[in-house]
Amino acid sequence: MSKTIFELENLSYSYLNKFPALVNINLKIESGEKVALLGANGTGKSTLLHILDALVFPDTGRIRFFGRDLNENAFNDEKFSREFRRRVGLVFQSPDVQLFCPTVKEDIVFGPLQLGVTQNEIKKRMDRLIEILNIRDFINRQPHQLSVGEKKKVSIASVLIIEPEVLLLDEPTAGLDPATCRQLLDLIDDFHAQGKTVITATHDLHMVPELAEGLRILNKERTITADGSCQEILANQDLLKQNNLVHIHKHRHDGSWHKHPHQHSPT
């Protein structure tokens, strides 16, 4: 069996056949990788994750999952469809989209219930996640009453409980305080340590070294311009600057303003 999970070939996608969101993407993701899709706003990161989760299908080009073509046809096969949903989980960028049930608890158990996991097993998994994510206090509340960070944690729980092999994360650290952020990064590490695959979309350069080993950069033409290890790419300041990924810091020295890019020395 092939160890390549996703293979995308000359893939393009546009919204309403008018607004291009992905242009000629070539991408290969191996089992057990921990990669980040890095790009400025509007470069197609979310769209790419939706393609990987087979929620939308390409206009042209193809995408394969373990060698099998992903298209509408494949998902007419109920067995394959269920299998795919069990193996691949996506945490949406907006928790308001992700959480649609009347209570937090119902939202968390939604996935495994649909996928036919036994009720006992679901309860076991839920208890563990509640412990790890420290969300017991609001388990019976309504999702819309929670703060942004709390919603994010519940969103993540609602996907982790499916115990997928591939985790797709869309801006997972946005809106989290430092402690919660740390918790999440550790959770992702644990997940990856079990030999699973993590693909994260982000524009937050600071988080990248913790979130990923490999990097793919999406540019404003909405295609992939760089593919390499985290170290390689983060060392290439020009590339980062071209793609609007560098913070420009501005501060005063002796009464005059001074601008320079934010840098992390690799020590």
Binding site: D53, L55, S81, V97, F100, Q119
Partner: peptide, 23 residues
């Protein structure tokens, strides 16, 4: 748009048209 997005979010977690609930 939200309608479509939520439907996607349901599909993504294995929804097939018959919602199931915890007893």
């Amino acid at each position: 748009q939200l309608n479509k997005d939520i439907y996607d979010a349901m599909l993504s977690r294995g929804y097939t048209g018959e919602p199931k609930v915890l007893d």
